[in-house]
Structure formats: C-alpha cells, structure tokens
Amino acid sequence: MERQISMNPKRDLRKRRLNFENFYAYLIMALPLLIVYLIFFFIPSISSFFISFTNYNGISLDFDMVGLKNYQTMLQDQVFRASFTNTFVFTIVVSLLQNLLSLLTALGLNARIRMRGAIRTMIFAPVLINAVVTAYIWTYIFDTNGLINTLLRAVGLGGLAQTWLGNPDYALGCVIVAHVWRFIGYSALIYLANLQSISSDVLEAAEIDGAVGWKRFRYVVFPLLAPATTINIITSIAGTFKVFDIIFAMTEGGPGNATETIATYIVRNMNENLYGYAAAISIALFFIILVINVFVYGFLKKRETQV
C-alpha cells in the first residue's frame, strides 16, 4: 500500500496529540538520563548560583546573603587574576598545540603505512589513562633526577637540567605538554574520521585541477576538515578552562601561583571554607566558558558553512 506523504508535516504535528507512540515512550527512555542530569548538574548549578550570593562556609546552613560581595572581592583578588591569566594561556596554547599535532597525526595515520592499526591504538592509548596517572608519569619525566635531566646529562648538556616543575618559568609549560600528550589521540581520531569521510572524487578532481601536495591540503583538505576542527576546538576550550586534576597532581598550582588555574583556585577556596566565594568563581568560570565558546563556535560554524 502506498503511504501518503503529508504536504504540511508541521501542521500535522500540531494537530496530533502527544501519546505513548509519539512522545511518552521516548520520554521514558530519556527519563533516567534526565533525572541524573537534573540531580547532578541542573540543581547543583542553580544552587551554586544562589550560594555565590552568600557567605556559606560549607558547614553551617545558617548563612547570610551578601549580595555581590563575593564577585567584588573576586575582581580585586590578585590570585584570581593570576589564575585567570594562567587558565587563558593554558587554554590557548593547549587548543592550538593539541589541534596542530593531532591534525598532523591524523594525516600521518590516514596514509597507507604499515602497522597503521597498532600505531593508532598506541596514539589513542593516553586518552584512556587516568589524569592522575598521566600526571605521575610526567612528574617522573620532569623530576630533578627524571628522564629529561638524565638524558640532558647523558649527552653532556647537564647545564640545561632544571627543576622543571619547580621553576615558575617552566612549570606551566610542563603541564601543557603532559595535557596535550594525553589528548592528541582523542583529537586525532576525530580528524581521522573526518579525513576518511572526504570523497576521493573531490580529491581526484582537485588533483586534475593541479592542486597537489601543500596546495591540495591548504585549499581542499583543510577546509573540508572544518566540522572536526569545530568539535576539537570547542571541546578543548571547554576542557582546558576547567582543567584541575592534572595540574593539581603535578604542581598543586605552584610554585607560587605559576600554575594556579581557575579550577584549582576554586578548590583551594572550598578547602578554606569559603564556599560562597568559590561558587562565585565557578559562576564566573561558567560565563567565561559560555561567552568564549559562543564566540568561537559562531566563528567556526560560519567557516563550516563557507566551505
């Protein structure tokens, strides 16, 4: 029997009542996740917003509303400013480095090379390692008697040996290296999936038109990787702005405030029973991530549509 296709599906949908077939069955399927989202994300987020206007100390429920005091203090807080600068630098450098290196990795893995499967697994493996374990691995590498200093001494460059994680000039860079190492495989996988979806017809047509090598990458492949770039940039910005675990395990935010990020500073304030203040910083972090992501997402989406 031939099925009738509606000429105006929107109007049909409005006319239809919600019933078990078209709505409630799906609602039940989504319900467990919605409940989890509500309990573990939505309610805490709303309560954080409320707490940010109080002097809640994390223990007593007998707290006062303090208006914008937490936010005003935040603007004058030097450590917050330092943590914001560090987070911003961390985000920019990680996002650029991670995407550049993972793009190169994906291009390499897309070629017909031997043991491609094994190499892909190896590159993706660090993503599966817990952040704290990653931190321990890299702490050993950067240790005073660790791998880097040992190698430097072995090749006669002992003068360059450093207390890498203890030096305010290098500590943030070291943490960036560890973080990027961990996520290269993740981003590379997304780029690789996008690369493999590019039609060979397009590439052949480009080749016929004379676009080979760098030109083919610059004018054909790279623009077509726009969807993967969007996903990778957005996820790395959101992830790096909230970075906590790897930094805390490697440097605890030090030396001084050299690697203090907004997230480590939030936890530090919670440990001092300044929950209201910590909540205000969390809210500020939320809006910072939101604004930056909206801006970057808008830019990258526009780029995608231009392609």
């Binding site: 030090g254 030396p255 001084g256």
Partner: peptide, 20 residues
C-alpha cells in the same frame, strides 16, 4: 585566617626561586 598559610608558602617558594 588559616588561609594565610597559602601566601606564606607561595611567597617562600618565590623567594627560593629568586622571584620574590
């Protein structure tokens, strides 16, 4: 004001590195 420990030790770390 036990959170004075924080600027105290961070300051000492910077003194050690010759940056404070």
């Amino acid at each position: 004001a036990d959170n004075l420990n924080q600027p105290a030790y961070k300051g000492m770390q910077m003194i050690l590195m010759g940056q404070g």
